[in-house]
Amino acid sequence: MSSLGALFDRLGKQHRLWRNLFFAALVLLLGLNLMIRPEEAHFGWDAYPGAFAAFGLVVGFVLLLILEKIVRPLIARKEDFYGDI
């Protein structure tokens, strides 16, 4: 495999490293949010620090839960459902 491929391979295996970096970045972003805030709040609540973070988290949860748990079981069908293949 090429050198770039070897690099990706190595990096891809560093799960712990990436997880830690990720959490550190999240904490950093939250900290920055305390200092940097929008001049005019578009939605009202986005002036509060951590608002967008919560929004992202909640929306992510809701989307994944609803879609994977409720929607998919309703509409999932076999690959050849319409008989086209």
């Binding site: 999240l26 988290l57 949860f61």
Partner: peptide, 9 residues
């Protein structure tokens, strides 16, 4: 923020 916490979710 948005992307990061969506990633967290």
């Amino acid at each position: 923020l948005l992307l990061g916490f969506a990633g967290l979710a």
